[in-house]
Design a protein around this nucleic acid. Structure first.
Lengths: 211, 211
DNA sequence: CAAGCCTCATGACAAATGTCATTATCTTCT
DNA sequence: AGAAGATAATGACATTTGTCATGAGGCTTG
């Protein structure tokens, strides 16, 4: 079973490599110290499992995982973390990472690698158990009212983030198209954005991208 | 502890009411048979916990929950389901529902209500355990190549979803602005979308809203 | 080699978008 | 009563965006 290891900390890489290569069925094909290497190495080695730290200096594990998955949707990626970084858990899940576990559990890493290889998804119990709270807290987070956004303006934002045109928004809210343009303009000004697309992106990111 | 019960099926409502009112500390303040009643009843009775079926004829439990939560963000809502409706689980989580469990577990309903009341979040084991797969299946899933989207086009999509203008995309990819416009036009045609904002929304929804 | 893609480019054009100035009504708070 | 703010509208304007026609060069595959 061919692996790639990526971790900021060369010590961790070495330690993991030693632990994993002690097992006859596991081979570490390559290692790196930053997520920016991930895609290149993946392309080159086509590993069975990619083991990667989630927090890294330049390109973090999530972004690297996104890059790899965009080209290899079936990539089996197991993300490691020192201590459960709440913010990352959900993103890792959504991304389609096949596993997420604590580095501390070093005795569990090899079994987890095998499980992921065989198609299973591995999320430590400490992690799955807190998903509900994390999910519930994540989506909110931006206080539009605090930024001087009025109720009506918020409606315009929501519809913009649905991909509607000014004309369509106007007709939905029974306004003139010009008025909608004015609202948009004022919103963009208040949120320091430049156009409706940036607004949609902004809103979806804050909201968590759904509904 | 004051409750409101909402379920499509009057039989279920009656049964639950009987079970719950048998307990001295629980009172069913009101019941209804459709989610459209939820907000009105909530306003009127201010229950400690709102128990609601997730699948209902007119207005489903999710939409009703969203309505209630938008006005009462601290509402404790426990959603019920007959059999784990995969698609609903994630939405319920994101919405901030405090609980989600199977009706079959009728012996667990009362304890769950008490747990939710005391501030806990209650998601049945069968549910939490499958969250990873659900999360992973939802976000990815769109095959751009199958829709005739080329590699270069995908890059344009990604940058568009960052909120960049044509000019900015052009400069990032070392292309002329016109070329970017052409790519955009072809992409919109292939994905049957109308403008860059719809494209950004589409992409973020498929990808899970980050990066 | 020819057909078919992907890449990249131009120019022209219509439509949508965002900005600005200005006006008006209504409510709320002081 | 007056100030402030939200709501709604208009017209004018420059810019951006999306479409279309057209063409060139490159790579791959039958």
């Amino acid at each position: 079973m061919k692996l790639i290891l990526i971790d900021d900390d060369q010590l961790v890489v070495s330690a993991l490599k030693m632990i994993l290569e002690a097992l006859p069925d596991l081979t570490v094909a390559a290692t790196a110290n930053d997520g920016s290497e991930a895609l290149r190495l993946y392309k080159e080695h086509r590993p069975d499992v990619l083991l990667m730290d989630i927090r890294m200096e330049k390109t973090d594990g999530l972004e690297a995982a996104a890059q790899v998955l965009s080209q290899f949707p079936d990539a089996r990626i197991l993300l490691l973390t020192t201590f459960s970084d709440d913010e990352y858990i959900i993103k890792a899940l959504r991304l389609g990472a096949k596993g997420y576990l604590l580095k501390q559990d070093y005795q569990n890493i090899a079994p987890a690698v095998r499980a992921v290889f065989s198609g299973q998804t591995v999320f430590g119990d400490e992690i799955t158990s807190r998903i509900p709270e994390l999910m519930a807290q994540a989506p909110s987070g931006f206080d539009y009212e605090a930024h001087g956004i009025s109720e009506r303006e918020l409606e315009v934002i929501r519809l913009t983030a649905e991909g509607l045109s000014n004309r369509e928004i106007a007709s939905r809210l029974y306004l003139s198209e010009g008025t909608v343009r004015n609202y948009l303009s004022s919103i963009l000004d208040k949120l320091e954005l430049r156009d409706r697309t940036q607004l949609a992106v902004f809103y979806l990111r804050k909201q968590g991208g759904f509904l």
